[in-house]
Write a protein that binds this DNA or RNA. Sequence first.
DNA 1: GGGGGGAACTAGACGGTACAGTACTGACTC
DNA 2: GAGTCAGTACTGTACCGTCTAGTTCCCCCC
Lengths: 210, 210
Amino acid sequence: MEDNSRTARKRAQIVEAARPVFLRNGYVGASMDEVAALASVSKQTVYKHFTDKEQLFTSIIMDTTAQVEGLTKMITATLDGDGDLAGDLRTLARGFLGAILEPDLLRLRRLVMAEAERFPDLGRTWYEQGFERSLKTLAAAFCRLAERGALRLDDPELAAEHFVGLLLWIPVNKAMFRGGNDLYTETDLDRLAEAAAAAFLRAYASRETA
Amino acid sequence: MEDNSRTARKRAQIVEAARPVFLRNGYVGASMDEVAALASVSKQTVYKHFTDKEQLFTSIIMDTTAQVEGLTKMITATLDGDGDLAGDLRTLARGFLGAILEPDLLRLRRLVMAEAERFPDLGRTWYEQGFERSLKTLAAAFCRLAERGALRLDDPELAAEHFVGLLLWIPVNKAMFRGGNDLYTETDLDRLAEAAAAAFLRAYASRETA
DNA sequence: GGGGGGAACTAGACGGTACAGTACTGACTC
DNA sequence: GAGTCAGTACTGTACCGTCTAGTTCCCCCC
């Protein structure tokens, strides 16, 4: 499965080292010398694996889109049970918050957005692979809930968009504009999740369950 | 009122020229030589008005917080009438979308977020002056509506956060990750505003008006 | 009204630094 | 022993902030 040849190992070293360098300093601010030094690799080796800085950057960012798997699993695991809908939505919301406020993911978001004009394909792909894919998974789960009569919705995708909007707009913006990660306590996050789930249910629960 | 002395004029020239340079290239990518050239001003003059690149940057970003006035006026002008609430909310939502998807404002958001770790004060101030202030204005307007019996809400600020979350999370993220400004047609925006206003009313309208 | 003094300005060179990408050498690995 | 790698020097470029020298503008006073 995983290629353990020397070439592959060196390449992995470079990628691992380059990620934090780009995350910390941005594309322009990142130095290839620092990448090589941090990877314990010579610059020649870096340029053997990646033609130039640009290609190294895009490779690293594109690799991160695989992390979405975690979110999609969380969605189906939480919503496809038989528990009470309100509790499940709260749990899912809380999980979303925890995942998306992870400091490294925030840095990645900042970086991709900052370079969205310099690397349009990068931004578009990241949005589609990360953002839209989890939205579609959520919409599908809502669809199943609607078929069981728990939700009332004409447009599952719109409902999914509204769910994440209610939940994430405020905390993500606050976190994106403030460097620190001590913005919210655990109970703050619980409260945010609770409020978003409740508002969502008022807007989208079928009448008999309310 | 406005200072027309040579000093003030030169300073204005520099600021006007520097804004697009920073917006286009980011903080690290922006060149002071380019700023001076674009302002038709010598570098000496630039450094007479601003001690260094950092101070020029923060001055420019801080200046933009004044633009919030437009949003707050829009809020009170739209919601403090006697018209039907649903229509007013739709109008307000549509206005928000138009304003926040302005390409230069998007670039500014990208820039401030990208530099939020390098300039923590900048990000925090921008968030508080721009973001929280309009949220508070909106919450106050909702409060007045609740007192007239049109809305049912325990926490006006939470309701305001939910309103903008429903409305903005999806289109703003899409726009931030994709460079182009041809993302949405006018009718797309109308539809987004309509859907957000409707969902908000389902969650927050008092029962008798539903 | 018209000089005159002084601050503000232009133009460009310069020092110091940092960086992308290349080239070379000697050592290690398979 | 052949290819790959570390270490490092090197080239060319870009940029910040300073400096010098000469010019223009503004304002006050006669």
